[in-house]
Design a protein around this nucleic acid. Structure first.
Lengths: 337, 337
DNA sequence: CCAGCTAGAGTGAGCGCTAACAATTTCCAA
DNA sequence: TTGGAAATTGTTAGCGCTCACTCTAGCTGG
């Protein structure tokens, strides 16, 4: 008989502490106006009984589940995965619960399923980690007045959005190369359907123009495959290219691989800088110079924003998060020709 | 005023369908003994009203939350991350919810916090993805009669465990090398505190002995750093080593890097096989031969087992999952000396 | 023709909590 | 003193659902 023995409830605690259940509720929820002595008595009783408030009852009575949903696409990628875990961890620390749900933003059905799943649970709010605006629009329509915070979009059409400043990141990466003395710098971007890709590319272009240099961009996708393909066929001499800014580390990896095949040396023949600082990047050959982003911070801000929205507060939108240059040996001054 | 307008409830549906709320409940839960016609009427009413059952009320009344917790350590690693997402996805497909929670199995406090978090939510069951037995023991003690399924442990101390056959995987990897003609094969294992590491090592040793070869093992940890350190100092000539079986792809990456530094060519001078088939492995230099594991299948089986346990069924423990060899160019026949 | 079934549907009592309000106590100024 | 505001605690009524019942009608067989 696995009768899940129901644990002690509020009334048990109340009886032991000689107060009403409501007082117990007040203590549990940190309401003001409880005498310190009573409070202590209740706390002791809770401890003694090993009382755990029942979330279901709480949710039912208050229509607040304390559960927030995370809709994440491309959960295999470094960025989304990192953000997801950051949010989960922050949620735990503020006594909320996170349920994450992978979606394919290209499939409307998949997005709807995910939203259905989350609303079925009764989430209080949703964090969306996806580059696709249409998925966000769809979600917003479906979710009614359940607040959404989007993450990592540069298009702040609404205040509820937290982003990493990919423009700035692209600029910093490019300037690093320029500072080293490079003039002919190529950018291999992610797919232009991604916010991040276009933002980084714009940052790159801006930095180039500031220094009166001509930006040149090849669009790839985020995969090492794409980097490899491009790297294999790329004619560095055509524009005297001495440095490449890859839209992410995976692209950079593909390039590295292709150049190794072709006997092109990095950084002697060409410098490469990536973006993301995925865990392996330090162990490639050569170790990759790249841009690091603080996902923990991102998660924290996203959740703060969301909770504020849920509770009806409206905080000023926090600033964007600026990525940081991690210098390794895949970039160097161009060799004198 | 963002008064979360409560949606329609069972009574609304009941009224519209001209039945009692209990009949609606029966339809929602697929209970038998409802006339087809009534059933349809209720379904229509639900559709018309856009009725969504309230999980909190359900959980409160039935003391079943339909939420399962995932306690996962080393969530940054490829394996655990893959399993976690597989479980989340399966949970969604069977109308359950998954809440994952990262823990540090070395810290008792962290494990307790995680368990606290999950029990606080009222999870019906827990999947633990961690190599540490003591963490599992701790969890089992804390969780009382909430069922736990452990994943990826070879120590099936209880029936509720699903595992990838790391022993078999180690054996297959080693045999691939032997088949290619290697005789002096070194194994660089993961930390011996991990089930997976020792299981793979045992598989390796068994394969070696079967072929009357002498196993030699160096213990590392799972990181590229460790692989690099070992690779830098390793004296291949000492035992005439022509092939290395790395405990995972990260170790293999470190080795690759170290050998590149030393001018040792792979696979010409030494063959290397990894384990995991992380997404990048195909794009390293050279592309890594490695062992792939089916996490989706693993997640599915783990959840099936857990649900059975929750519902008091006892199914026969499903077989282990056998990893599959992915052959790329980091392994080749030994060059004739 | 009626006892005895059974499929199908209904009734009422909670599950454990919060929210609104009511009641009581405390404390201080008039 | 004493009135009354402020602080503290208690009371009551659900939240939306499931569970354990009861009730009804139709159908069987003796």
């Amino acid at each position: 008989m696995s009768v899940r023995s129901r644990g002690p409830n509020m009334y048990d605690v109340a009886k032991l502490a000689q107060v009403s259940h409501q007082t117990v509720s007040r203590v549990v929820n940190n309401h003001p106006n409880t005498r310190e002595e009573t409070r202590k008595r209740v706390l002791d009783a809770m401890e003694q009984l090993g009382y755990r408030p029942n979330q279901a009852a709480r949710a039912l009575a208050s229509s607040r589940s304390r559960i927030i949903g995370i809709l994440v696409s491309d959960a295999d990628f470094f960025g989304p995965a990192g953000m997801t875990r950051a949010i989960e961890s922050v949620a735990q620390s503020i006594n909320h619960f996170a349920v994450s749900c992978s979606i394919d933003p290209d499939s409307e059905g998949s997005v709807l399923d995910g939203i259905d799943h989350l609303t079925g649970l009764g989430v209080d709010g949703v964090v969306m980690i996806t580059p696709r605006t249409d998925a966000v629009t769809l979600a917003r329509a479906q979710l009614g007045n359940i607040p959404i915070v989007t993450v990592d979009s540069m298009y702040r059409v609404d205040e509820l959005s937290v982003s990493i400043d990919n423009f700035q990141g692209g600029q910093t990466a490019t300037e690093h190369l320029i500072d080293l003395g490079h003039r002919n710098i190529l950018h291999i971007s992610g797919p232009s359907s991604w916010f991040e890709a276009t933002a980084r590319a714009s940052g790159y272009a801006a930095a180039m123009r500031t220094h009166r240099l001509t930006p040149r961009i090849i669009e790839g996708d985020w995969t090492p495959e794409a980097g490899y393909e491009i790297g294999v066929t790329l004619d560095l001499d055509a524009y005297g290219t001495t440095a490449i800014f890859a839209g992410n580390d995976d692209l950079a990896l593909g390039l590295l691989h292709a150049f190794a095949d072709r006997g092109i040396e990095v950084p002697a023949d060409v410098s490469i800088i990536g973006y993301d600082d995925i865990p392996h990047a330090a162990y490639w050959n050569p170790p990759l110079t790249t841009m690091r982003q603080d996902f923990a911070e991102l998660g924290e801000r996203a959740l703060t924003l969301l909770i504020d929205a849920i509770e009806g507060r409206k905080m000023p939108a926090p600033e964007t998060i600026v990525p940081e240059l991690v210098e390794r040996s895949s970039t160097a001054a161009p060799s004198a020709e």
